[in-house]
């Protein structure tokens, strides 16, 4: 299952709910304001880095750059993607859950 998070952890409890509801072999894609989960020196960023290595993390590159976050500051395990890759991920995971 691919989780897609579009809300900022600073604004919404969905970030916390997503992390609580995730299984070990799943993926998490952050889009729109969800990319604020990756702001450096935040508890959400630390929480993401503490997820098991089997959880794949993705972020929509356009949404990161549009919001002025520096690509270089992103944790190494986060993969930057575009829309064609988003579509491809949807075919790889058995279902998509949008938060």
């Amino acid at each position: 299952m691919l989780h897609v998070l579009r809300h900022a952890p600073q604004d919404s409890s969905r970030f916390a709910s997503t992390l609580r509801s995730m299984g070990p072999e799943q993926g998490l894609l952050m889009i729109e304001d969800g990319v604020y989960s990756l702001l450096p020196d935040t508890s959400s960023n630390s929480a993401l880095q503490l997820l098991p290595a089997s959880v794949r993390l993705y972020v929509m590159e356009a949404d990161v750059s549009a919001r002025g976050l520096a690509i270089d500051d992103l944790p190494k395990r986060v993969k930057l993607i575009d829309y064609p890759t988003f579509v491809q991920l949807c075919t790889q995971y058995d279902k998509v859950l949008s938060w």
Binding site: R6, I31, E32, D33, M60, D63, D82, Y83, P84, F86, V87, Q88, T91
Partner: peptide, 19 residues
């Protein structure tokens, strides 16, 4: 809402990808 744009970009990419 930015979601209106995200959904359109996704839909375009889906068709472009042959889906």
């Amino acid at each position: 809402d930015p979601a209106a744009r995200s959904a359109l970009s996704f839909a375009q990419a889906a068709l472009d990808g042959g889906h």
